[in-house]
């Protein structure tokens, strides 16, 4: 009896801790959601609050009504994230399968070949010089796809470990029936590997969706901006104009500039629009996260 009481006490403290801890995660998000539904005046006057002071959909309406920039950025983001993820998964899986076969002659060499890229990176500037000057893929849609088409060494190793875990008898019987390696991969291995494909595809999709630095470094053409970079630009432009206005240099024309500045609540509405899709779909992929992605998987 005494023992049970003690455990209950611990449980209450534990749950209390987690409720407070979760509040630290939810409150910042609620602030932003609430800001996006608050009218511009109330936001400037009263500041951020947990519940919108003056509820309005005005920010979302104007985001979609005259948000040509935003809609284009949305299309670019969906296209580059979707195509990039698909190609990366296919090519990465194709690379990983031979590395998982014990009888592949170049297994050791090729594993080393991709492992080196995990240890040593070329760095931002040499990559920029090669891609922009020699390949000429800056300022084009290709810059979103090509450099990440291999899927990266890390994902390849996770795929490889998963393939290694498939029962060997499967391969033996397939070979006995005269199946070629290519058939074995596409007809047997791929259908059996949906969990690992799902988790890597989702992780890649999130990275691609949230990518802003590719646009920041390589893209000058505003039509090719991703959503996240557009947000980043808006923040920077606002800072820049505010500084100019404060320093008095824009004293005469500040009113015109104010009209071009997106209002505060519009910025937060765009935040929600940009982050929303990933936040909505991630709970459905949660069961796959721990599956293929333990680091122990990379060893060996």
């Amino acid at each position: 009896m005494k023992k049970k009481k003690k455990i209950d006490g611990f449980n209450i403290v534990l749950h209390l801790f987690f409720i407070l801890f979760c509040a630290c995660f939810i409150i910042p998000l609620v602030l932003v959601i609430s800001a996006s539904f608050t009218s511009e005046g109330a936001l400037a006057l009263g500041g951020f609050s947990l519940l919108p002071r003056e509820f309005t959909l005005e920010a979302y309406r104007s985001a979609f009504a005259n948000g040509e920039r935003m809609i284009r950025a949305y299309i670019v983001t969906i296209a580059q994230a979707g195509l990039g993820t698909f190609l990366a998964c296919v090519i990465c899986g194709m690379m990983a399968y031979p590395l998982s076969r014990t009888n592949f002659r170049f297994k050791g060499f090729l594993t080393g070949f991709i492992f080196i890229t995990m240890l040593f990176s070329a760095g931002m500037i040499p990559r920029y010089i090669v891609f922009a000057k020699y390949y000429g893929i800056n300022d084009s849609f290709l810059i979103y796809i090509l450099p990440v088409i291999t899927g990266g060494a890390w994902n390849t190793l996770i795929f490889r470990t998963f393939f290694k875990g498939l029962p060997e008898s499967l391969f033996e019987s397939a070979h006995m029936d005269g199946a070629k390696e290519l058939t074995v991969f596409f007809k047997i291995v791929v259908p059996l590997s949906t969990p690992v494909f799902a988790s890597i595809a989702f992780m890649t999709l999130v990275t691609r969706w949230n990518d802003y630095s590719t646009s920041m470094i390589y893209i000058r053409d505003e039509k090719l901006y991703t959503l996240q970079f557009l947000l980043q630009r808006i923040m920077k432009e606002a800072d820049f104009l505010k500084n100019l206005a404060n320093s008095g240099e824009l004293a005469g024309i500040v009113n015109i500039e104010n009209m071009l500045l997106p209002s505060e609540n519009l910025k937060y509405a765009m935040c929600i629009i940009a982050a929303g899709p990933m936040l909505v779909i991630f709970p459905f992929f949660q069961k796959y996260f721990s599956q293929g992605l333990t680091v122990g998987a990379v060893k060996g």
Partner: peptide
Amino acid sequence: FMSFVVVGFITYA
């Protein structure tokens, strides 16, 4: 699953 840009907006809020 949020980009750092969005996290930046949240910190600013």
